[in-house]
């Protein structure tokens, strides 16, 4: 499904709505260039899960955990990793089958480690500033 997201407010609505559907063990992959708003969408998902802590970029830390919501949220940014092997090195692979929800930014970098049937949202720039196109599907 392709969705036109006109502005940040719609990003937030979409994220809040998606959060309602999430169950323990769900993995959400966010793929898109720098600046497309992967972290903004993650913040909305976190808000939808009831996370009260401020979501900050996990680029350097690779994964940040938030436990204040209805489910634990594990926010990954694998931008700095060379591939899925490095994900195993830090034990991150175990989060995917765990008790919470994983949101993985730049998931294409660790594609082989992503469980089958995970949600995948590709984000592209739209035709006007602030606009984004979400291409929503499932990984195989």
């Amino acid at each position: 499904m392709k969705l036109r997201i006109k502005n940040e407010s719609e990003t937030r609505r979409f994220g809040l709505s998606l959060a309602q559907e999430l169950e323990p063990g769900d993995v959400v992959c966010l793929v898109g260039d720098l600046g497309t708003g992967k972290t903004a969408l993650t913040k909305a998902i976190a808000e939808g899960l009831g996370v009260t802590e401020n979501i900050i970029s996990p680029t350097f830390n690779i994964v940040k955990e938030y436990h204040s919501g209805r489910l634990p949220l594990y926010h990954f940014d694998v931008y700095r990793l060379g591939g899925p092997e490095e994900l195993y090195d830090i034990g991150a692979d175990e989060y995917f089958d765990g008790d919470g929800v994983c949101v993985v930014e730049w998931a294409d970098i660790v594609a082989e480690a992503i469980p089958e049937g995970s949600r995948l949202i590709r984000i592209q720039y739209g035709s006007v500033p602030d606009e984004r196109i979400y291409d929503i599907g499932e990984t195989e």
Binding site: G35, I56, S57, F60
Partner: peptide, 17 residues
């Protein structure tokens, strides 16, 4: 503290761009 991107991160990302 940083509320979103830390300084070093922002530098790395712009470098990539």
């Amino acid at each position: 503290a940083s509320r979103d991107d830390a300084a070093g991160e922002a530098m790395d990302k712009i470098a990539r761009v």
